[in-house]
């Protein structure tokens, strides 16, 4: 455990390691519980025993069909999307050195939204499965454009990235509205996708982006030790021998892959990427070697609980998960605001 050598003397090191393991186990437990709830609850509640039977193929009938046919894909997608968003948020905050950065502020969601709306309008698409690659391309295009704007002397300037991303996002949003206003059918199709939702998507939506998502995760985990050095500022990081430019570039690619995959599957879901790191930081501290895996758990935990909540509040109908996260995220941000600044 060379990692925690700088910790408090005597009891510090083993105690902290113990605390971290406990917290990770508690997090995993909560995630399991959430997964179970996500399988069981909804317009039609299914007892947990039936859920397990259905999963192992021992049960048949309508309840079992609901679980395996609808809720299982939805839950699996929720886990993947939540993990991708959580990790992307942690990495985005580290590379921009800005605690308010998230995939949204880099223009990723807006880029995906615009691409999908154009695709619906021009190619007359009407099925979320068909949107996947357009969304991914739009997200990647916007994020790469934002990063290109922020490039200076071969490096990405964090201030420019934040400014450029925000401006890009506003422009894309206004274009999205313009396209939707030109065509009633586009408006009708797109507004549901734009709210961000996990429902009505078969697992086929997830398979195409699984490789990019996995690649993004691997990169994010690989650069996480170096992200700690970035927090010290570029000069100090450089002095420590960290290749700042390459790390920031790799982090940027990871964010694009992760958030692009997420938005391709579920549409734009705000706040998970922002909230997950802020939830994990007080528990595990600012060390990215813990923070990034922590967000890997916290992201899906937040997303699944929001989704389950969305199914319960206006039964038998349901709220799109993107709307639920925005409603929950806003007070969280206000709380955050009260904590900072004396």
């Amino acid at each position: 455990m060379t990692a925690t050598q700088r910790g408090a003397p005597t009891t510090g090191v083993p105690f902290r390691a113990f605390r971290h393991i406990t917290l990770f186990l508690v997090g995993l437990g909560a995630l399991t519980l959430c997964t179970a709830l996500s399988l069981a609850l909804g317009a039609r509640s299914v007892p947990l025993s039936t859920v397990t039977d259905a999963l192992f193929g021992d049960a048949h009938g309508r309840d079992a069909l609901v679980v395996t046919g609808l809720r299982l894909p939805r839950t699996v997608i929720g886990l993947a999307v939540g993990a991708a968003l959580g990790v992307a948020g942690a990495v985005a905050q580290a590379i921009t050195r800005n605690p308010l950065a998230s995939p949204t502020t880099l223009g990723i969601n807006a880029g995906a939204g615009f691409a999908v709306v154009v695709a619906i309008f021009a190619l007359k698409l009407n099925d979320p499965v068909e949107y996947v690659w357009f969304a991914f391309a739009g997200a990647a295009g916007a994020a790469l454009f934002a990063q290109a704007l922020a490039r200076r002397a071969g490096d990405i300037d964090p201030v420019r990235l934040a400014l450029g991303g925000t401006v890009l996002q506003l422009v894309l949003l206004s274009w999205t509205s313009a396209v939707m206003l030109m065509n009633q059918r586009t408006l009708d199709e797109a507004r549901f996708w734009l709210a961000g939702s996990l429902s009505g998507r078969p697992l086929d939506v997830l398979w195409p982006v699984l490789p990019t998502l996995m690649l993004g995760l691997v990169i994010a985990l690989a650069v996480s030790p170096a992200l700690n050095a970035l927090a010290l500022g570029d000069d100090s990081a450089q002095a420590l021998g960290v290749p700042v430019t390459r790390i920031r570039l790799a982090g940027g690619i990871a964010v694009v892959l992760l958030a692009g995959s997420a938005v391709a599957v579920a549409g734009p879901v705000a706040f998970i990427g922002l909230a997950a790191p802020h939830l994990v930081r007080p528990l595990l501290g600012g060390d990215h070697r813990l923070l990034v895996p922590g967000c890997l758990i916290a992201g899906p935990l937040l997303l699944l609980s929001a989704d389950v909540l969305g199914r319960l509040v206006i039964r038998p109908s349901e709220l799109e998960v993107g709307i639920v996260t925005a409603f929950l995220g806003a007070p969280l941000l206000a709380l955050l605001a009260r904590k900072v600044a004396r």
Partner: peptide, 24 residues
Amino acid sequence: VTRLVLTGLAVQAGLAAAVNLMIV
């Protein structure tokens, strides 16, 4: 100032979500 900026973002996000909900 910092608190104002962050709180403003929060208020904006919450209200935008409400608008979004209505549009959907």
